[in-house]
Design a protein around this nucleic acid. Structure first.
Lengths: 126, 126
DNA sequence: TGGCATCTTCGACATATGTAGTAGAATACT
DNA sequence: AGTATTCTACTACATATGTCGAAGATGCCA
């Protein structure tokens, strides 16, 4: 389930609060994103077609709900980035993150802690 | 500098070895990606237009080189993913990674080590 | 009940992306 | 030199994406 950038905007708004109407969603778009009502509707229709969102009518008005969880969506976006930009492996990404100082000290310490607790369970480098 | 998926394929091959001719690049594409020679050329032209790649002739044959570093490209791809799918913050991503067990034991330990060293250098570790 | 406010459904359109085929110029092989 | 190979420069085209506008159906308030 690959979402386009515009679709992510819609989904983000929908995950934030749902069920929701097209208008609800429109008002929850990031400030800066100023789409016409019909643009939102178009995106929603496409998402319904893709079965990423469900739609049901409540007296002439459509009520939408996510069918794809944010987790699933994030997983596929993440995997895509990994494959396309980091040789499909976590190693290069980790390296990159540290090199680029994407983590501040607090985050690093936090991460170390979480990692420490988790490191007994084996993971998967998919 | 946003690259499309197809463009990433080309760039990956180019970063791997450059300068390179279109044919060099073609042979370095991942097995599975079977593009016609002209497709590779088209992608290269577009990348040259975007100034992501430079081109110069050596007796009727074009020699290409990356103008955008892999690091820069990764940075913008990463930032895009973060903004679009993780509320633009590292926190949610870190959480996601741990939750999804994207790291195996070895990687976690490795990460802890690197983090440890980095943190000390930053003079922040408890 | 007459309208205005809202929705919905369709269609439209420009640009972006993925993928190639053609034809003619340059180069290389025999 | 003649021919086969390889390049380049263009053009083409289908699908994907981003953004609406128009017109008609419905709902709500004075």
């Amino acid at each position: 389930m690959k979402l386009t950038q515009a679709e992510w905007q819609i989904m983000n708004a929908l995950w934030e609060k749902h069920p929701a109407t097209a208008r609800d969603i429109m008002t929850r778009l990031p400030q800066g994103v100023k789409w016409a009502y019909t643009t939102v509707k178009t995106m929603l229709s496409r998402l319904v077609e893709k079965e990423a969102v469900s739609e049901h009518k409540q007296a002439n008005t459509s009520i939408y709900e996510p069918l794809v969880s944010q987790r699933k969506a994030r997983l596929s976006a993440f995997r895509l980035l990994l494959d396309q930009s980091f040789n499909g492996a976590m190693g290069p990404l980790m390296h990159f993150l540290l090199q680029e100082q994407k983590l501040n000290d607090k985050q690093k310490k936090e991460l170390i802690e979480i990692l420490g607790n988790e490191s007994e369970k084996a993971g998967e480098i998919k």
